[in-house]
């Protein structure tokens, strides 16, 4: 019961924060709302007792991605005072269309899938099991994905360096 109440509180909170991302007039506020909403998703994972996923959510989305977003904002804006800036341009209707489309796809997918788990008594997956899966059962794809990311990283650096050199 208590879990359910907390779940609902956080679910509504996430929706409110996501609305904040879309509707706030300042880019900075949007980014901060985004962090809040992603952290809320992390809390949802905690409620589902998948701590590893929750912590990964915090680390990757809360810590790294949004920080990069904020950093990029800081370096590229003319006005460092954080004043409101016009974010809605002529692309707004298309963005709305795309958003509705994505939401519809997700909804259809969510409703039509036969979910295997059980929210009444979620199973606690130990980190040992996850690592077993990741490094033994799916070891090769994992390494291939890592190599792909590394290549992308090095490529990005090379592209950036070349532009600087000229």
């Amino acid at each position: 019961m208590a879990t359910e109440v907390i779940w609902w509180i956080f679910a509504l909170g996430i929706i409110a924060l996501s609305a904040g991302v879309v509707f706030s007039r300042s880019v900075i506020h949007s980014a901060i709302f985004l962090i809040g909403s992603l952290a809320g998703v992390g809390v949802m994972f905690v409620i589902l007792t998948v701590e590893f996923l929750a912590l990964t959510q915090f680390l990757i989305y809360g810590g790294a991605v949004t920080v990069l977003v904020l950093l990029a904002l800081m370096l590229t804006r003319a006005d460092p005072s954080g004043r409101a800036e016009k974010v809605n341009g002529p692309q707004a209707p298309f963005a709305l269309l795309a958003g509705i489309g994505v939401a519809a796809v997700l909804l259809v997918a969510a409703l039509s899938t036969e979910w295997a788990g059980n929210t009444e008594s979620p199973t606690n997956i130990a980190i040992e099991a996850i690592s077993q899966r990741l490094f033994e059962d799916f070891g090769l794809p994992f390494i291939l994905a890592s190599v792909l990311l590394l290549v992308a990283l090095v490529g990005a650096i090379i592209v950036a360096r070349q532009e600087e050199g000229e």
């Binding site: 900075i28 901060i32 962090i35 590893f52 990964t56 680390l59 809360g62 810590g63 904020l70 954080g82």
Partner: peptide, 20 residues
């Protein structure tokens, strides 16, 4: 893992202070 996952969020507050 918890310690450094959560510490990563520390930057957000600093960035908020700097931007705000």
């Amino acid at each position: 893992f918890f310690v450094f996952a959560v510490l990563g969020l520390n930057i957000v507050g600093i960035l908020m202070a700097g931007l705000g």
